[in-house]
């Protein structure tokens, strides 16, 4: 077998032999260990010992400069004409009117923001980044005393002082925002997928993990409007309504969840699944407990679960899922391996 493995990593095997090696690796933990060791030994020893050329390095520096320019354009001119744009206005009844007015005000004023940027730089503005690793939650107080609770695996990037047109922050992951009211000075939350959320003073839960298929925004108080600039359609959210954006299809749906606890319960330490699909459950367990989850049998991925946990450990959660015949599992170091309940 050892000879076959070496041939396998050298890419010198037939499809049939490759299949045999893979099946062998999955047979037992010991085989897997040998496989992993051989694979990583191969990666380390076969690492090319060559530098990038001067011209490649110069092209890279050009890329960095282009990248910086693009960032500046993004800051000075939010691109309203492409993709999605969410605006949150505090007065529900006149949300539509306020939105259209503030939009035109923003884009006019932004024209001279270039100078502003230089001004900011010369003041030596410092930036802070607060991140919560998987398994940890946190709370951040922004310079305007707005409060953001961060769920595991989230990060927020903000200046020491808000200057310019907006209270601008960058955000990824899941956060419960309590934004201080200031309708003349909106908060702009830049997300990794290029979308921005505009807020004047309201409370909401925003979940925009990069590795999630959808983005969700649950409004607690105030009002939200979301503009699809392609179709020029304006979607309005009322308190307790939840907006879901499917990132792959760009489809938006609005639901009114009977219970908002499954969405915001994390803030109080609740881990709640409400007919949640297995891929979502496992992703959330990874974040919640700061572990890696490996799935051995993809057949488990079609299952769903409704359950509520508070102070349970990972093994207690997995044990419950085992007791109700959902999965089989093993935990070793910080990796949980999930297999089908019927695999044994």
């Amino acid at each position: 077998m050892e000879k076959l493995i070496i041939k396998y990593f050298a890419g010198e095997v037939t499809a049939e032999e490759a299949k045999r090696v893979r099946e062998w690796a999955l047979e037992s933990d010991e085989n897997m260990e040998i496989f992993v060791k051989e694979k990583n030994l191969r990666v380390v020893t076969m690492m090319p010992d060559i530098e990038a050329s001067d011209s490649e390095a110069d092209a890279f520096i050009n890329l960095l400069r282009e990248h910086d320019k693009k960032l500046q354009i993004n800051i000075t001119k939010p691109n309203y004409l492409r993709g999605w744009f969410i605006a949150v206005a505090s007065v529900a009844a006149v949300a539509l009117i306020i939105l259209s007015i503030s939009l035109s005000v923003f884009s006019n004023k932004n024209k001279n923001l270039n100078n502003q940027l230089v001004f900011i730089a010369s003041q030596q503005l410092s930036y802070h980044e607060n991140s919560t690793p998987y398994g940890v939650k946190g709370k951040v107080i922004l310079p305007d005393s707005s409060v953001v609770y961060l769920n595991s695996g989230s990060s927020i990037y903000y200046p020491s002082k808000f200057l310019g047109e907006n209270r601008e922050v960058e955000f990824s992951g899941e956060g419960y925002f309590e934004v201080k009211e200031n309708s003349a000075f909106p908060m702009k939350i830049l997300l990794k997928n290029g979308m921005s959320v505009y807020v004047k003073g309201t409370t909401f839960n925003l979940s925009s993990y990069e590795n999630d298929k959808s983005l969700s925004l649950l409004l607690i108080s105030g009002s939200v409007s979301m503009l699809d600039s392609k179709s020029n359609e304006l979607v309005k959210l009322l308190p307790k309504q939840k907006l879901l954006l499917d990132k792959t299809t760009s489809k938006i749906s609005i639901i009114r969840p009977e219970d908002i606890q499954p969405t915001v319960g994390w803030k109080k330490g609740w881990l709640i699944f409400d007919e949640t699909s297995m891929p979502d459950i496992l992703k959330r367990l990874e974040r919640w407990y700061g572990v890696n989850v490996v799935v051995k049998d993809s057949s488990v991925m079609t299952k769903t679960l409704t359950a509520k946990f508070r102070e349970e450990s990972l093994s207690q959660v997995l044990e419950l899922m085992h007791r109700i015949s959902l999965i089989d599992y093993t935990i070793k170091d910080s990796t949980a391996t999930i297999s089908s309940f019927f695999s044994r």
Binding site: A15, A18, K19, R22, A25, L26, M32, F35, V36, K37, K39, N40, L41, V43, V44, M47, P279, N292, V294, V295, K296, S298, M301, T335
Partner: peptide
């Protein structure tokens, strides 16, 4: 996830790679 029910050999290959990458020795470079 994407290879689910599409190409099981390719999927297994990636699962093995995932296991290898999760191992500490993968960052030794």
């Amino acid at each position: 996830n994407k290879l689910q029910n599409v190409d099981s050999q390719k999927q297994t290959d990636l699962i093995l790679n995932q296991r290898s990458l999760l191992d500490n020795t993968s960052s030794l470079i």
